[in-house]
Amino acid sequence: MFKNIVNKVNRFIAIKSKSHFFGSSRRFSKFIKIMKIGTHDGVFHCDEVLACFMLKCLPEFKDAEIVRTRDMEKLKQCDIVVDVGAEFDHEKKRYDHHQREFNETLSSLRPELGDKYKIKLSSAGLIYAFYGEKVIQSVAPKDQPLTTENLKVIYKKVYENLIEEMDAIDNGVPMTDSEPRYKIRTHLSARIHRLNPEWNSEQTKTIDEDFMKAVSLVSEEFLYTVNYSISVWLPARDYVKSALEERYQVHKSGRILEFKERFPWKEHLFDLEEEMGVNKIYYVIFHDKPKSWRVQSVPVSPTSFVTRKSLHKKWWGVRDEILSEVSGIDGCIFCHSTGFIGGNSSREGALAMAVASLEAD
Rank of each mutant, 00 (worst) to 15 (best):
S327W: 02
L195I: 03
V84M: 11
I66A: 00
L121A: 10
Q77I: 05
P141I: 01
V82C: 04
A360Y: 02
L311M: 09
Y159D: 07
E101I: 11
E267H: 15
D63V: 03
L113V: 06
P141A: 04
L106I: 03
R237G: 07
R185H: 09
Y248M: 15
E104C: 09
V226H: 00
R194G: 05
K266C: 02
A124I: 03
H193A: 15
G114K: 09
E73K: 11
L257T: 02
V300P: 08
K76H: 13
Y282F: 11
S231G: 10
E164V: 06
A190D: 13
A236M: 03
F211R: 10
I15K: 14
F53S: 15
H40C: 14
T69V: 02
G317P: 08
T148P: 11
W315C: 02
P264A: 02
T204I: 13
C46K: 15
P302R: 00
A356F: 06
K33S: 14
W315L: 01
K33F: 12
T338A: 02
S297N: 06
F44C: 12
D288W: 02
H268G: 08
K116L: 07
L109I: 10
F211L: 07
D143K: 01
P264R: 03
V318R: 13
G23A: 05
T225P: 12
W316H: 10
S345Y: 05
D288A: 00
D143Y: 00
P290T: 03
K56L: 09
V318M: 12
I154R: 03
V278T: 14
Y224A: 01
Y128E: 12
D177H: 05
P235N: 00
F2T: 13
Q99F: 12
F28S: 11
I333W: 02
E87I: 02
S310D: 08
V49R: 02
R110T: 10
P290F: 04
E359H: 06
D238M: 02
N196K: 04
A51L: 11
V306W: 02
D208E: 12
K157W: 08
E209C: 05
G85R: 05
L323A: 01
G132R: 03
T204W: 11
T307G: 07
W233D: 10
S216E: 14
N161L: 06
F259G: 00
K241S: 12
A356L: 08
C57T: 11
G38L: 04
H336R: 01
I5M: 07
G328H: 00
A356G: 05
E261D: 05
Q77T: 06
L75Y: 08
S301I: 08
G277H: 05
S219W: 13
S327G: 13
M212F: 14
F88C: 05
A190V: 12
F61I: 09
H312T: 08
F211A: 01
E133C: 14
V9H: 10
G254F: 00
Y182R: 10
A214I: 03
Y95S: 11
S189T: 15
P290V: 01
S138H: 06
S19R: 14
Q99V: 15
S219H: 14
I230H: 08
